[in-house]
Computed example of a mutant assay.
Amino acid sequence: MAMNLPSRSGRGRRAPMAEINVTPLVDVMLVLLIIFMVTAPLLTAGVPVELPDSRAKPLDTEDKPVQISIDRAGKLFVDDTELAEADLPARLERIASAGSGARAGGRPPQVFLRADRGLDYGRVMRVMGELNRAGLNRVALVTVEEGS
Rank of each mutant, 00 (worst) to 15 (best):
L59A: 13
G135P: 14
L32V: 05
R8K: 13
Q110W: 10
P58I: 01
L51V: 03
D63K: 14
E19V: 15
G118E: 10
G135T: 11
L43D: 05
R133Y: 04
E93G: 11
A40E: 01
S69I: 02
S69G: 14
R55V: 05
D120V: 02
V144R: 15
G135K: 04
R117H: 12
L119I: 02
L141I: 11
P41E: 08
M17S: 13
V142N: 11
G122I: 05
F77N: 10
L131K: 04
D63T: 14
P108G: 13
G135I: 03
V111Q: 01
R133V: 06
V26R: 00
F36P: 10
Q110D: 12
L83Y: 09
S54A: 14
E93M: 11
V26P: 03
E85T: 03
G101F: 10
G74M: 12
Y121R: 07
E145D: 08
A56D: 13
L42G: 08
Y121W: 00
P24R: 07
A115T: 11
A86D: 14
G46C: 07
R103Q: 15
S69N: 14
R11C: 03
E145N: 11
V111G: 05
V144T: 14
L43V: 02
V22S: 03
P41I: 04
A98N: 15
F77I: 07
L88P: 00
S9T: 05
R91L: 04
G12R: 15
G99H: 06
R138H: 06
N137K: 11
E146D: 09
V49N: 00
V47Q: 03
L30T: 04
V47M: 07
M1Q: 08
I20H: 00
L30H: 01
L119E: 05
L113T: 05
A86W: 08
G10P: 04
S148V: 04
F112R: 10
P6Q: 12
E85W: 03
R13F: 11
R91Y: 07
M29W: 03
V124T: 07
P6G: 04
L59V: 11
T44C: 03
L76P: 12
G135C: 10
I95D: 06
R114W: 01
D120R: 02
P16F: 11
L51R: 05
E145I: 12
D63L: 15
I70A: 01
I95L: 13
T23Y: 00
L76K: 00
D53M: 03
G10D: 14
E145F: 06
M37L: 13
D53R: 05
M125C: 01
M3Y: 05
M128Q: 12
V47K: 00
L119H: 06
V78I: 15
R107Y: 00
L59I: 09
A115G: 07
I70Q: 03
E146A: 14
R13S: 09
G99K: 09
N137T: 06
L141S: 07
R91F: 06
D53Q: 14
Y121A: 04
A56H: 11
S97H: 02
T143P: 02
A115K: 10
A56T: 12
L59N: 09
A2F: 01
T39A: 15
S9Y: 06
G118S: 13
R138D: 01
F36S: 11
A140I: 09
R94F: 12
V142C: 10
L43G: 08
T143F: 07
K64V: 09
A98G: 13
G122S: 07
L43Y: 07
A90V: 09
L43A: 06
I34K: 04
G46T: 02
L25S: 01
